[in-house]
Design a protein around this nucleic acid. Structure first.
Lengths: 212, 212, 212, 212
DNA sequence: GTGTAATCGAGACGGTACGTCGCGTCTTGTT
DNA sequence: AACAAGACGCGACGTACCGTCTCGATTACAC
């Protein structure tokens, strides 16, 4: 997840970027947002906590949201496995359960919420957030769908695009509104809804009966 | 949608609240957010445009988001019909299409996005936004579900709670990430996914019997 | 000491001025200036303490300093006797000692200081303060000087005008700078200085001659 | 006349105080108080006129009166010579005439009046005004008195302390009440009153003996 | 080694908006 | 008409951060 202004690449003269300062800033931002909330988070506050000058933050990140996004990437491994579990249904369930597990970390959830919020308000950050975070999550689930299509157990409905919208829509909606993650029942219900046609295209009635 | 600090009710001495100022403030906020965006919107700017003092805003609303929420309620009729269209499938499709139509108003969509954003950042506003806006939308769709259950064409899966999460999740996810509303294809795909069991009327009687 | 905007004089229709409110306002102003100081004194604060509306204050006094001046007149008897003590020297000493005694009331002194201050800043109040307070004090001492001239023990120097300037100048200077009144020694020293020629009339001619 | 918060002295890191801003602020304050008066003078107005931020003023001065006091020190050379004119009488007359000349500058007089006023209202400023202005003036005249004592023509009465009170008392009283400075006649009259005993050298020796 | 160049901390700077306070005015209903 | 109450337009307050700009003081590469 690259968001620095200048990937140095070629060798330049002059002092090198301080790795200590970078980490101190990311840690300070991560801690502060947990202590005083995003509304109270300021560049000045981060600089104070990190023991660095404001300029050092402005040099490398354009906004506090950018700092926080990188801090999240450093502090939390956000990437969810999409290993093959043998069937489309099991893959989807596993994906949802992985996400569910991740969203138990309240600190991480809180940061995701405010980053999504900031993406609505700050156009430039929105661009980055969509391309470097949201799209990556879609890509991960897309792999599951592609595998199902190859395997042959992908139901004709809903389309892949709709599945992505439903899955991430439901996830984010819960995050943003109830502030609590999906529960086991919702995981199960959602998995069934998205995959029921695939499981038994001919005998919907029986499935329904079993599920009761 | 009541959000004023003091519903006066009984007759008190002193000058009454100015209806002119209230409307001027709501109109100014609505216009300004369209012209300069939410990030640039300030209480000071609203007061200037409205030709009133800042105190008059602070007296009645605790934040610019509260002003905007009331402005939205005044400027836009947000409430979507949930009239009976004869079947669950048609009711759901109508609800989604109504929403789709509403979300063609870019100004309204932009405000909804930033209000959802603010609800993540400002705890107090989040409370109000959930209770006075989000919950009402859920209630409206709940009526459709209740009618379907009574009518007898509500599929056993997904549960009502899951349907609400999926519908509003997908709606908000599109709003917040692509910034463009659902298209006809998504409406159709989503409707089918949520009601596909209902499309097999032979099972419906049995399901209903089980559910009761 | 009249400073009301409208001496009612003739009989007008409508409700009469409330004597209770007037006294409550004057008392509140007097108390508040002692508790929180002149800088913190506000019309709103006076109105709250007095249990009256702000308009009632604005109706009768143009500024908080005007209120305070009237409050002082009501609360403190500022007028110093200038009774005949038989000689110019004793009259002057008595006048100074009276003033000294008055200036033991710290509350009164504090108010006089801030009224003099306000008179420098607020042109309109300055006018009133000079004519209705300062001039009256000068007039009182002038009586002493006139009596001495009649009696024949008024030294030719300093002139009456200079005596007034020296006496009140010294009084006010002590008030404004040390915040403590003249002591006995200063009273005695000042009396002697102003009247010494009177004590040694034979030198006067020589002095005058020398000074020319 | 030092009134800055931090005499930097030792070398600190960070940007240095801007001398341009300091002068721009002092000039703006001096001009504005002449144009709109002290009551209308605001920190905000000074900052606008000076083309600087408000914080730059608050960083270095605690109130508009402090700014004005420093502005006065920069704009006007307030210090009056106390050179030796050969006799106590001539020294006192010269001191008074110097002051008289200074007080022809209406702008300077107006500022002195409001600073004395502010010193009554603002405790902290009063402290500074007394110690950094009033006391220095007293010290200057004290030099004249000390020289007279050394020289031997200081009259026994009034005491040095009383002379200071009378001189500055009369000066300030005229300033604060008539708003016009002492005239030639008052200078002469006051000089004579304070020095008349000195004109009788026969008494001086005895008096001096007593005083020692 | 000795420039030259970039980064670092610190912190002053010109700004902008904050949320509050008090001003003096203006209803509103009561006395 | 005056009164208590209190909302109003207004303007300044003093504060908090913004993002920029000196400042010495490091570092590091290039000569």
């Amino acid at each position: 997840m690259v968001m620095d202004k200048q990937p140095p690449s070629e060798s330049r003269p002059g002092r090198k970027r301080s790795a200590e300062s970078r980490m101190a800033i990311l840690v300070a931002a991560f801690e502060l947002v947990g202590e005083i909330g995003y509304a109270g988070l300021t560049i000045e506050g981060i600089a104070n906590r990190a023991g660095c000058g404001k300029q050092t933050i402005y040099r490398w990140w354009p906004s506090k949201a950018h700092v926080l996004l990188e801090a999240l990437a450093v502090k939390a491994d956000l990437y969810i496995t999409n290993a093959d579990h043998g069937s489309y249904t099991d893959d989807v369930r596993a994906f949802l359960e992985d996400t569910f597990r991740l969203s138990r970390q309240q600190r991480v959830v809180d940061i995701l919420r405010v980053l999504m919020a900031e993406a609505q308000i700050n156009e430039e950050f929105g661009e980055l957030f969509r391309s470097s975070f949201l799209q990556r999550r879609r890509d991960a689930l897309q792999v599951v769908l592609d595998r199902a299509r190859t395997r042959g157990d992908l139901p004709p409905r809903p389309t892949a695009s709709t599945v992505l919208d439903i899955v991430f829509g439901t996830l984010w909606y819960r995050l943003l509104t109830t502030r609590r993650p999906m529960g086991d029942d919702l995981v199960e219900d959602l998995t069934a809804t998205l995959t029921q046609a695939a499981q038994h295209p001919t005998n919907t009635a029986i499935d329904l009966g079993d599920q009761q």
